[in-house]
């Protein structure tokens, strides 16, 4: 039983490391894996870069590729685990930070904060996810209230409410962006799925929010399992059901907000990854959350790699790549859900 899960965990960790290595190595200048390995190994031991590796490799790896890969990895894993958590709380396989409108809400929060003041300092950057979190929480509360029918959340109302609230948030975001000054506007386009911010500053600013959110989600697996029997039975099994749901939704929204604040609004990772995890390894949220976390990182790293290389030297917004794979998957899930309900 649990050795099967440990194998799944190991496999996902290996895949994530491979994807991260590929992401750092491949680009306009492709760095041979041998050189990349030696660069990293020297850096880990605190030694200067080896003499026979071109010096600009080090600049590319440590100043450009590594922070970019770290940001993408953190964002993808955030979307993966929060997607699994949303699906668990709503007991609905179509829930996902993007389809629920939470990502758009977080984006709006971040843009409002940016339009008030563009963060010039690391301290200012720490404020960005907080603003995104506010936007995300307001959105999820609104969507939940709109979608709830007699204590359950049917797929149809959930998606309708999510799309409507998400559209409203996106419209407000676009309006604010068009109103803003030129430099600010360009800086903001990443939120709509453009290239994310560069450098280590956004990674460091995202990390504390990511850690808190992920820690809570990882600890929520058992509660999510109990909640699959509905709120009333969960309560009868000894879970403070309402409180557990609130905590998990808050943590999922915090994790989503951390991702959106610096990587922009990216759809479908949170839908597709938990689904594949369930298909391959069955349903147990104590494992589904960590597996979706790892798988989300891998999926977004690979999507980002495609976005950078498909039309190189042009870089596609990564959201286009995830939607290209994710939207047909969504339709397939919808079809399956429909058949199960019939």
């Amino acid at each position: 039983m649990s050795s099967r899960w440990l194998r799944a965990l190991t496999l996902n960790i290996v895949l994530l490391i491979l994807a991260a290595g590929l992401s750092v190595a491949v680009g306009a200048v492709t760095i041979p894996l041998k050189d990349l390995g030696r660069l990293l190994w020297h850096a880990v031991r605190g030694l200067p870069a080896p003499q026979d590796v071109p010096s600009y490799y080090a600049t590319i790896v440590f100043d450009l590729r590594l922070p970019h890969a770290a940001l993408v990895l953190l964002a993808g894993s955030a979307l993966g685990s929060s997607g699994a958590a949303y699906q668990g709380v709503f007991r609905n396989p179509l829930a996902d930070p993007y389809l629920l409108g939470v990502a758009s809400g977080a984006g709006l929060g971040a843009v409002v904060a940016l339009s008030l003041a563009w963060p010039q300092t690391q301290g200012g950057m720490f404020g960005l996810p907080a603003a995104a979190f506010l936007g995300a929480v307001v959105t999820v509360a609104l969507v939940y209230a709109l979608a709830r029918v007699d204590g359950t959340v049917p797929a149809t109302t959930l998606i309708l409410a999510g799309v409507a609230v998400g559209a409203l948030a996106t419209a407000l975001t676009s309006f604010l962006m068009l109103q803003s000054e030129g430099t600010l506007r360009r800086a903001m386009t990443y939120l709509m799925g453009g290239a994310p911010l560069g450098g280590w500053a956004p990674v460091l600013a995202m990390l504390p929010y990511w850690l808190v959110g992920q820690a809570v989600l990882l600890a929520s697996g058992h509660a999510l399992n109990v909640l699959q029997f509905g709120e009333e039975q969960a309560q009868q099994l000894g879970l403070h059901a309402q409180r557990a749901k609130t905590v998990i939704l808050a943590a999922a929204s915090l994790t989503t907000a951390a991702a959106v604040a610096f990587a922009g609004i990216i759809g479908f990772i949170g839908l597709v990854v938990p689904h594949i995890v369930r298909l391959l390894w069955g349903e147990d949220y104590r494992w589904e959350i960590p597996l979706s976390l790892l798988g989300g990182g891998t999926a977004l790293l690979l999507s980002d790699l495609l976005a950078r290389t498909l039309l190189a030297p042009q870089t596609l917004p990564v959201g286009i790549v995830t939607a290209l794979f994710g939207a047909p998957f969504f339709l397939w899930v919808l079809q399956r859900t429909k058949r199960q309900a019939a």
Partner: peptide, 28 residues
């Protein structure tokens, strides 16, 4: 309760183990 609307993918053992929830730590 009445057996309605149960999580389809759970195994029998998983479902019965959830009966231990009032005795388990938060990690379950």
């Amino acid at each position: 309760p009445q057996a309605r609307d149960l999580p389809a993918a759970f195994t029998v053992e998983q479902a019965v183990t959830l009966g231990r929830t009032p005795y388990l730590s938060w990690l379950g």
